[in-house]
Amino acid sequence: MPQASRTKKPDVKVVILGDMNVGKTSLLHRYTERKFKDTISTVGGAFFLKQWGPYNISIWDTAGREQFHGLGSMYCRGAAAVILTYDVTNWQSLAELENRFLSLTDTANTDCIFAIVGNKADLTDTLAHGPDTESERGDEAQPEVPCPTPPGTPLQHKQVSREDAVALYARVLRYKGLEEKACLPAETVCFETSAKTGYNVDVLFETLFDLVLPSILKKRSEGESSTVDLETPMEVKRTKAGCCA
């Protein structure tokens, strides 16, 4: 039985941050459950374990509401990747990333990867009306064809362009004191997605998981983590004191 709990130990941590109502939970829900549904505003943070190949990736889906900011640094502690999410139809949601959320990432790993994600692309872009072609899983749950556009809904004005997101990425790196050249290029880590149609969602998560792989391997090779592992020493003790078994 202890076997089961040990295999569940997360290898790496990914945190999703962003203003309320930009669709953080929906993105994760689309990725893990393959469907879109009306979610209720998240309280605190929700913790998920995602089996990815031989690795366990833990994902923190956090609440966007100011009310829960007190916990932000706890969610971000030791994160290998932070997904900064905004709503392409809402300029303020991009500004909030810089104003409120960036400082929460101070506790993340020094080599933390930042992704800038503009969600709700289906509202502004016809391209986003189908799930991305790379989604390799057969997901019949999604209405694939461009039919999701309700007849009466015209495309909304896109308030945040891709260039704005790229510019934010540059500022994030500057905030972190990182050399732009030494980091991942913006085109790799800036995404526009739609949790509603599934557009780019798999690409986002799979790309990020690929990118954090070195971090996992590094952690494994180092062997030691900064957190005390309660299980390993107990294991040792048990073998030593074989008499009481």
Partner: peptide
């Protein structure tokens, strides 16, 4: 009530101040 009304999707583990 908070639990019933707020578990967005129920697979994860929630950690929240209350």
């Amino acid at each position: 009530n908070l639990i019933g009304a707020s578990s967005a999707f129920q697979a994860g583990e929630i950690w929240t101040p209350i």
